[in-house]
């Protein structure tokens, strides 16, 4: 059960990611969480997705986060939670216990009759091509979004012809 250590590692890294007061530390812990997650994914047989998770989740997102932190300035967030800590803890634990009691233990599935292919590329480019196409839409929409959000609107009055 050596995988247990990965799980514990994920928990610690995830916890640190949200507990570190300094923004840049948060981002780094998140990268570690992501890396450990991708290891677990690899162990589950999702080779390609693990690579993508490693590059996008641990790589791109961290870079973007660091970039954003650079713009807003790396600060130490010492604010006290608005929702009382124990109330939040209570709510989350209640939810987890309730969910967990209905989810664990899980059975090994007996769906071996499912005919669906287990090849990633075929699934992505042929069967679920619509999802892939929608990713492109999402990408373009978000590009528009970032452009729109970053645009300088101060010249609005200047351009008005009326």
């Amino acid at each position: 059960m050596w995988q247990l250590f990965i799980v514990i590692g994920i928990c610690i890294a995830g916890f640190q990611a949200i507990e570190s007061k300094r923004l840049s530390h948060s981002a780094l812990w998140l990268a570690l969480t992501s890396a450990l997650t991708s290891w677990l994914m690899y162990l589950l047989g999702a080779v390609e997705a693990a690579v993508i998770e490693l590059s996008v989740g641990a790589g791109v997102v961290t870079i973007l986060l660091v970039f954003a932190i650079n713009i807003v300035g790396d600060q130490k967030d010492e604010s006290k939670p608005l929702v009382p800590k124990y109330l939040a803890m209570f709510i989350i634990l209640t939810a987890l216990v309730m969910l967990g009691s209905m989810l664990i233990p899980i059975q090994q599935a007996d769906f071996l009759t499912v005919t669906s292919t287990s090849v990633f590329a075929k699934s992505m480019w042929e069967e679920r091509i619509l999802d892939t196409m929608l990713q492109i839409v999402l990408l373009f929409a978000s590009v528009l979004g970032v452009l729109s959000l970053m645009e300088d609107r101060s010249n609005e009055k200047k351009d008005q012809s009326s």
Binding site: A49, Q108, F120, S123, E127, L139
Partner: peptide, 25 residues
Amino acid sequence: ILAGYLTNQIGMAQSMALTVIVADT
């Protein structure tokens, strides 16, 4: 990925995971 592993459809699960990664990034 776990669901894909359990249902023996890891390819489809990976494709879905990819979509989720992109969407949430």
